[in-house]
């Protein structure tokens, strides 16, 4: 999908998340320092960086699971909603083992006292690629990929304004990862939900997002912002443009004054 410049302006015109002079850390040590970051409504942004650079911390701040040490986080909520709704997909499926897939998908509704109809569960199952049979199974009887799909359906059940993904495909094998990446990409475009994904996989970030933001250094700061203007077909992956985009991002991830042996 090619984003025209008019779409880009539209994004910029309605930022949904705005981080200003935000600093996060533990016990007085800064881990992440973000001077300014705006994420537009409907945009898919990936945060890429080395392990332990604080990208997951940043995601948890956006989810309001953690409070920043200083600075500001603004999330604008839609007019018709009392509060911002967030869907979160964790690195592990994070399902309740004693509940069926369907009951796991319903959980956010129960916790927020917002009823989830069974037709809504079925609609989601279809969207993420779960069969009616899978819905009645407990996690122990589902494969890793199916569990991830249940986790994704659960994150979407309350029609979130914000979808946050924390290295969602780190624990699945290569083939399945590509499939899930394509599915999440399609679903995100369908729903138009503002999405922030944390990953250490540059290819994954380029295949899925509108913008790739790299983090690095100590404390971690934004080292590059790359707008991805490629269509996301499988053929695209073998084009020089694809390779060049990945190369640019890898360059930004390279630690300063330290040569990395690329093989």
């Amino acid at each position: 999908m090619n984003h025209s410049s008019s779409e880009q302006t539209e994004y910029a015109a309605r930022p949904q998340i705005r981080l200003t002079n935000l600093c996060a850390g533990f016990d007085g040590t800064a881990i992440v320092q973000i001077d300014s970051l705006e994420i537009a409504s409907g945009e898919f942004v990936s945060l890429v960086g080395p392990s332990g650079c604080g990208k997951s911390t940043l995601l948890r701040i956006i989810a309001q699971l953690l409070a920043p040490a200083s600075g500001e986080l603004e999330i604008s909520k839609p007019k018709d909603r009392r509060a911002i709704r967030t869907g979160f997909v964790f690195q592990d499926p994070t399902l309740l083992p004693w509940r069926t897939a369907a009951a796991n998908i319903r959980l956010p509704g129960e916790l927020e006292q917002s009823s989830v109809s069974s037709s809504r569960v079925h609609e989601l199952a279809e969207l993420v690629g779960l069969s009616q049979d899978d819905l009645q199974k407990r996690p122990a009887a589902l494969s890793g990929g199916m569990k991830m799909r249940v986790s994704l359906a659960r994150a979407l059940v309350l029609q979130p304004d914000l979808l946050l993904l924390d290295e969602p495909f780190a624990a699945v094998d290569d083939l399945l990862r590509q499939q899930l990446q394509a599915d999440v990409f399609r679903i995100q475009k369908n729903l138009g939900v503002t999405t922030v994904m944390v990953t250490h996989n540059v290819t994954e970030a380029v295949c899925m997002s509108d913008r790739v933001i790299t983090l690095g250094g100590s404390p971690a700061t934004i080292t590059s912002v790359t707008t991805v203007q490629l269509d996301r077909s499988v053929e695209m992956r073998s084009t020089p443009e694809f390779g060049a985009t990945i190369g640019r991002i890898l360059e930004a991830l390279r630690p300063p004054r330290c040569s990395v042996n690329e093989s």
Binding site: A63, F88, F90, Q91, T94, L107, P108, L111, E112
Partner: peptide, 19 residues
């Protein structure tokens, strides 16, 4: 992560205990 999921959806003390 399950604990974070419950917090994300504003689970009460009772819901966290029971569910």
């Amino acid at each position: 992560q399950l604990h974070e999921l419950f917090r994300l959806h504003g689970a009460t003390w009772w819901q966290t205990l029971w569910k």
